[in-house]
């Protein structure tokens, strides 16, 4: 289980999660990411909350206090228009990275054979 999540990937995951699920609080985001990654990415809270703050400081998400499903005060995060644009950009660059990485790994793998 990778302890260190690349900063860029975590940002993208959070943004994507907010895009698909709509406004969400920190706990919900952590749960969702854990679920999607099939239990691999159990996010350290020390990583998640600073990341949320960072995204907010960049203006990609915004936060407001609201009422959760269980009727509690919770801080909800949602995407901003700039955040949406960022997803497109990040996705492209991520796909590029993945395709490049993929080629590297494939070559290494073939040589092994």
């Amino acid at each position: 289980m990778p302890k260190e999540v690349l900063q860029g990937t975590l940002d993208l995951m959070v943004l994507r999660t907010l895009e698909t699920m709509g406004p969400q609080h920190g706990f919900g985001l952590a749960q969702r990411i854990l679920q999607i990654s099939e239990g691999i990415l159990d996010l350290n809270q020390g990583t998640l909350y600073p990341a949320l703050l960072r995204l907010e400081q960049r203006g990609w998400i915004k936060s407001k206090w609201g009422i959760s499903d269980n009727n509690r005060q919770a801080k909800f995060y949602e995407l901003t228009p700039r955040g949406r644009r960022q997803i497109t950009q990040e996705t492209e660059s991520w796909e590029l990275t993945v395709s490049v990485m993929d080629r590297f790994l494939r070559k290494a793998a073939t040589r092994k054979h």
């Binding site: 609080h25 920190g26 706990f27 809270q45 269980n70 005060q73």
Partner: peptide, 10 residues
Amino acid sequence: AELRYHMESL
């Protein structure tokens, strides 16, 4: 408050 919420949810 935010962290407490997280903990209580857990």
